[in-house]
């Protein structure tokens, strides 16, 4: 009885905490809107960032992206547009804004080809359902033919077709899962807020550390994929001054190098 009571208290407490947290996020959001209306864009950005530390919404990240765009920080802007689109993929306004941000950042938006569209993360659930239907329905028909039909021909034909169709569905699902994995490791490069970078480019270095030579340069807003280490985690290295460096490559794989953690933002933060 006591156990049930304490469990009830715990659930109630966590609910209150959650509501309080959401309430605080709401308050910060509205404060940010007011600051933006008053023309204090920096204050508005700070408030939105504080709210995003508590909770996330498509509108919050959309507004934050807009503010960064107005401040011509296109890297941050693209990052938050991507976050907003992840929360609300059907928002066409966000898509249009993101494309405009890419244009202003002198970058080309990600290519929308057949693979990127129909085997993207958004289609993962679709392909999983198709895969499951094909698998179970096929299996049922297979056993029906095996036990209830005397002729072996339909069984063999059906098995061949079933394996073929299921392989194709499985392949499509696997493509989507690969894109999902890459999305989990995708980051958007941006200029660090503290550093006085006059070149407006971000360097990918040959080795982790600022003193190392530059392998290549990228523009703020470019997408990068963090490479995986041998243990399956993100490949990173912490140097003596405490900065953590990550090994990243561009989405087309042409650029590769080490990037400091404050020079990019995670679309899906692995630590949250």
């Amino acid at each position: 009885m006591k156990l049930l009571q304490s469990l009830l208290y715990f659930l109630l407490g966590s609910m209150i905490l959650k509501l309080q947290c959401l309430g605080q996020a709401d308050r910060l959001f509205y404060d940010a809107v007011r600051s933006e209306a008053a023309g204090d864009l920096d204050q508005a950005i700070n408030l939105y960032l504080k709210a995003s530390a508590l909770s996330h919404s498509a509108n919050l990240h959309g507004n934050l992206a807009n503010l960064y765009f107005k401040k011509e920080q296109f890297g941050h802007s693209i990052l938050h547009f991507r976050k907003a689109l992840l929360l609300n993929p059907r928002d066409t306004e966000l898509v249009a804004n993101l494309n405009f941000a890419y244009e202003m950042a002198n970058l080309s938006p990600p290519l929308q080809n057949f693979t990127n569209t129909y085997f993207s993360v958004n289609f993962l659930s679709f392909w999983i359902i198709i895969c499951v239907i094909v698998f179970w329905v096929g299996l049922l028909i297979l056993f029906y033919l095996l036990f209830f039909k005397t002729s072996r021909k339909p069984f063999l034909y059906f098995t061949t077709c079933w394996i073929l169709v299921f392989s194709m569905c499985f392949f499509a699902t696997n493509l989507c899962l690969k894109q999902k994995s890459e999305l989990g490791r995708e980051v958007i490069s941006h200029l660090p807020s503290i550093e006085n970078n006059h070149s407006n480019t971000i360097s990918l270095r040959r080795f982790a550390g600022e003193s190392n030579s530059v392998n290549t340069n990228i523009l703020p807003g470019e997408s990068l994929i963090i490479q995986l280490g041998n243990n399956g985690t993100n490949k990173s290295h912490q140097i003596a001054n405490g900065n953590t460096w990550y090994l990243a490559r561009s989405t087309n794989g042409k650029k590769k190098g080490w990037i400091r953690e404050d020079e990019f933002g995670w679309i899906i933060d692995p630590n949250s």
Partner: peptide, 25 residues
């Protein structure tokens, strides 16, 4: 055009605790 393009949303919309890449699996 930037002010015209990027309209600020006055309502926060639906809150989520984490941006997650959850799937059916």
């Amino acid at each position: 055009p930037t002010t015209d393009l990027f309209q600020t949303e006055n309502e926060p919309g639906e809150w989520v605790k984490k941006i997650q890449n959850k799937t059916l699996l």
